[in-house]
């Protein structure tokens, strides 16, 4: 059970890292995520059923997610459409694409198929329990992805991406094409989201076209929960807190499912709970801000020299 929460937190954590890149680093609220997550799951499931090399399939999953992000960024850049609308367009179109990828059906089970997880369980048989083995596997995968991202955001290109989210004019003044930066950033984000979807399909044992519903909100809630935990401007701390936020969010959702039963909550209420969670954190953030303004004003009044 507790392993389950950590595994879910880590697998969705890859997606939350993607959401964090667009929402927080690029300041580009990207809704493509709701489509690129099931896209990743669909490509992964199809690859596995077709018997493709699993590493090749994971790379393919990343690339298709990347492509979805590129489409959104291009719509936004070239047609001068607001980023929210560009994301919704791609997300909607992806729903049809995903059904095509799944072979004209809404879901594809992976029962008795050779996935990464069956391989992991096989290799560690006798050393670890199956669920512990899966947990260790995902810890390794997620830590590697996190470290690669940390590295990326400390290189020159990564720094430029961060600056663009904060001050586009400044980045233009350094002779950088912000349209290219947006393509790179949004694509990278969706590549990660697709990989997360691909891993989730293996963990759950199926791919479903509706797997992505509300994913963006879950991702955003996880990012916000993380922000309550730590404050910093260092990228490795930011990515760490994203993952912690994701695990914590899954824990809260687990509690919702487990104890919600007593107050007549059903799993379908979780979307509502997630939304309320986000609204709650927004209220807290807002109150903190007002309080700090008030306190600063109070200091001036106490000083009495103005």
């Amino acid at each position: 059970m507790i392993e389950g929460i950590f595994i879910e937190g880590l697998v969705y954590g890859i997606m939350v890292l993607g959401v964090f890149i667009t929402f927080r680093i690029l300041n580009f609220p990207d809704l493509t995520v709701d489509g690129s997550f099931p896209l990743g799951a669909a490509v992964m499931a199809t690859g596995i059923t077709m018997g493709w090399n699993i590493i090749f399939t994971v790379i393919l999953v990343f690339l298709t997610g990347w492509l979805a992000g590129t489409v959104t960024a291009l719509i936004h850049n070239k047609l001068k459409v607001p980023n929210l609308l560009a994301g919704i367009l791609t997300m909607t179109m992806l729903w049809s694409v995903n059904i095509r990828v799944l072979g004209n059906r809404a879901n594809l089970p992976l029962l008795r198929q050779e996935t990464m997880l069956t391989w992991v369980r096989g290799v560690t048989e006798g050393i670890l329990t199956p669920s512990a083995a899966v947990l260790v596997f995902f810890i390794i995968v997620v830590v590697v992805i996190k470290l690669l991202l940390d590295l990326f955001f400390s290189c020159d290109l990564g720094i430029a991406l961060g600056a663009m989210g904060n001050n586009e004019q400044m980045v233009i003044n350094q002779g950088v094409n912000v349209e290219t930066l947006k393509i790179i950033g949004v694509s990278l984000s969706n590549g990660l989201v697709a990989v997360s979807g691909g891993m989730m399909a293996q963990f759950q044992g199926f791919a479903d076209v509706n797997l992505g519903q509300g994913i963006i909100i879950a991702g955003l809630a996880s990012v916000m929960i993380g922000e309550f935990l730590l404050r910093s401007n260092r990228i490795w701390i930011l990515t760490t807190r994203v993952l912690l936020g994701s695990i914590l969010y899954r824990g809260l959702m687990y509690l919702g499912r487990y104890y919600g039963y007593y107050i007549n909550l059903t799993p379908s209420d979780l979307q509502l709970i997630t939304g309320l969670l986000i609204i709650g954190s927004l209220i807290v953030t807002q109150m903190r801000r007002e309080k700090s303004f008030y306190e600063r004003d109070a200091k001036v009044r106490e000083r009495g020299d103005v």
Binding site: L157, A163, N233
Partner: peptide, 25 residues
Amino acid sequence: AGTMSLEHNMMLSAYKGMKSLKKNL
């Protein structure tokens, strides 16, 4: 860029044009 450190800001202006994957800082 207000939400970034001084050194990252300065790194951005160390050379003009598209940035690479090198870590020059």
